[in-house]
């Protein structure tokens, strides 16, 4: 069977679910960041697959995926800076212990 758009969409759905699973089970804040990266990559695969199969002349999907990469880099930088700050103050990065502003 020839590889079509459906294959790529299903693969990206699978990757997205794996990322969601990791996001929900992990207690370590670093692993949560990594799971978010997996989910963003799943979305990027969708964009590039659509650009290839639906819109091969004006490749809007590829441009959009590049923007997503830039935003993901920004998100990781801010997230890691926040985590290091929290670690410096509390010497702990268990996500369940970040409850000081919970009411």
């Amino acid at each position: 069977m020839e590889i079509g758009l459906t294959h790529y969409l299903t693969l990206s759905a699978l990757l997205f679910s794996i990322g969601l699973f990791g996001l929900l089970i992990s207690r370590n804040a670093f692993r949560i960041l990594m799971s978010i990266e997996i989910m963003l990559n799943a979305v990027n695969i969708n964009f590039v697959a659509f650009a290839h199969y639906v819109d091969p002349l004006a490749i809007k999907g590829q441009v959009f995926s590049l923007f997503i990469m830039a935003i993901a880099a920004a998100e990781v930088a801010i997230g890691l800076a926040l985590l290091l700050l929290i670690y410096r103050n509390r010497v702990n990065i268990d996500i369940a212990s970040f409850d000081s502003i919970k009411w």
Partner: peptide, 17 residues
Amino acid sequence: FALVISALTFSLLSFVI
């Protein structure tokens, strides 16, 4: 709980696809 949620997400997405 996480397994159920992610399996539901995957089945929903693949159903739509």
